[in-house]
Each structure stands twice: as structure tokens, then as C-alpha cells.
Amino acid sequence: MNLSALPLEDLIACPRCDALYHAAQPAAGERAVCGRCHSVLIAPRRRAGMTIIMMALTVTVLVLGALWFPFLRISTSGLQNSSTLLDAALSFVGGPLLIVSLAVVALIVLVPLTRALLILYVLVPIVFDRPPRPSARAAFRLAEELRPWSMAEIFAIGCAVSLVKVADLADISFGPAFYMFAGLVVVSIVQDTWMCRWSVWKSLDGAEGYR
């Protein structure tokens, strides 16, 4: 097939290796993969839009909830302490380590929350067959750029490591927020595997709704 004869909007270039293809919508559940570098180019799923909206709502609730409940409790010889997410994030306060504090807040609370809200802002109109919001494209681009910086799941593993680290120093137990974070790990993974970026961009072009 002569690709250069096709209109530009029917073409897709692999973002990894620049190979050019004629974009054809695969059936739901199938994937279009770059023949040269094997990057996944298109992976639509049935009712993905609604699933992602539900997941984004769940992330919002879990992150906000996890802020207020303790995630670890410690007790030894009559003394006890429990720590919330905010305590952990603010533990560096005072001196130059404040920067670390701000980074921790951003990586485990602000970025996951911002991503969830941006995705809601982008997807809710197009899933319900409304025209996309005016700055939906910029919002979706930002959400994609933030993806590697959303580290809630790494924080959950960090909790488990800390648990073992102080196990001989004191008795330590998980609080409700820990389980919320564990849920967050699963939800973020589901959200990322259901999201087909190509389909979202296509919907934002106004050609068709996203389901």
C-alpha cells in the first residue's frame, strides 16, 4: 500500500521507532503492535471509557481518604505513635530537606490526584457523547506527561519495607490508609492497561465518541 497517498489523519507513526503505518481500528480486545520495535500502538477495549472514569473516581476517593487515616501504627514499651500520609510527607520539614518533603507530597498525593482529575475532565464529556471540553487536549497531554511521576504504588511497597525495618525496634501494624494505598496500586494498574491513548486522541479530534 502506498502510504504517502493516504490522508495524514489515517497514518500512525510509532513514537518509539518512527515506523509509519496506516492506522486501522483493531477489534476491541485486540492490539495493533509496531512490526519493528513491538511497541503497542493501539489497544482498544470494550467500555474502556466508563471503566477508566470509574477508576479515576476511585483514585480520587482513595487518595483523599488515605490522607486522613493513619497508615502505620507503632507501639513499644507503653509509647505509641501513628502516622498519616501527611505526617510522612511533612517529616522533612525544617532545613534544606523541606524540598524532599515537597517532592514526596507531589509524587504520592498531588500527581496521582491531578492525573485522576485531568482524566475525568477529558473523558467524562466524550464518553457521554458531549463535545470535548475546550482545553481537553492540553489536559490529556499533561495527564500523559505526569504518568511516570505518579508514585503511589511505590510508596505502598515503601510501607512494607519500613514495617520490616523497625519490626525489632517496636510493634508495628497497618492502619486503614495502608489498605487504601494497596487498593490504589491495583486501580492505577487497571487504569493504565485500559487506556488506549490513540483512541482517546481520535475521540478528541471530534470524529467519534469514546466508550
Partner: peptide, 29 residues
């Protein structure tokens, strides 16, 4: 980043008055 998070968690959690306290060191930054 896991190690930075562990430091953050430990230094907020292990603040047991005089018995034991863990504070972050400059390496975390």
C-alpha cells in the same frame, strides 16, 4: 524512589519521645 519513601515513613512514624526517634539525613535529598 522507594528508599526516599522509607525514610519519610520511618521518620514520621518512629517519633517515640526519648525512647527512639528516627530523623532523615542529608543523603535523602
Amino acid at each position: 524512589m522507594i528508599d526516599v519513601f522509607v525514610v519519610a515513613i520511618l521518620s514520621s512514624l518512629v517519633q517515640l519521645n526519648v525512647v527512639a526517634a528516627i530523623n532523615p539525613g542529608p543523603a535523602s535529598l
